[in-house]
Amino acid sequence: MSLLWFSKNVLSKNSVLFNFRSISTTPQLQIKEIKEIQKGKELTIYGEIFKSPREPYVLNNNHSSACPVCASGLDIKHTDVLILSQFVRSDGCMLPRRITGLCRKQQKRLMPNLNPSWSKKDPKRRYGWKKFNKYFDESTIKC
């Protein structure tokens, strides 16, 4: 009897768990939002593209042929973390060229060494001489 009650209880709980709509108003891909507008008898459902949070802060590229980094005239070094983080996914990997839209030279030049905050790679716990602070003279860095 108790077993039957238990199974019933679990099943009813499960049925509650799986009872959701397959179409959500806040999509997981974060590209479009589904909106509904009711005008009298007419119902319009459309997908609205999300605005990028970067849009108000993007530099305008006055050169039609140059890539964004070449056009900006910036000499980006490994310490410019606020710039490098713009070309990086949340897990610290560099974005591919089809997304960054940089020229081949600049894409190869930018090799960010940024760890996400949840990374377990603590520099203090490296082995031997690698755990101590080191710096690189920017005038000696090639490219």
Binding site: L29, Q30, I31, I49, S52, R54, E55, Y57, V58, L59, P68, V69, S72, L74, L82, I83, Q86, F87, I99, T100, G101, L102
Partner: peptide, 12 residues
């Protein structure tokens, strides 16, 4: 901080 690039329209 001023951004050098924006993501493409369809980028997730």
């Amino acid at each position: 901080f001023p951004k050098v690039i924006d993501y493409p329209k369809d980028y997730v």
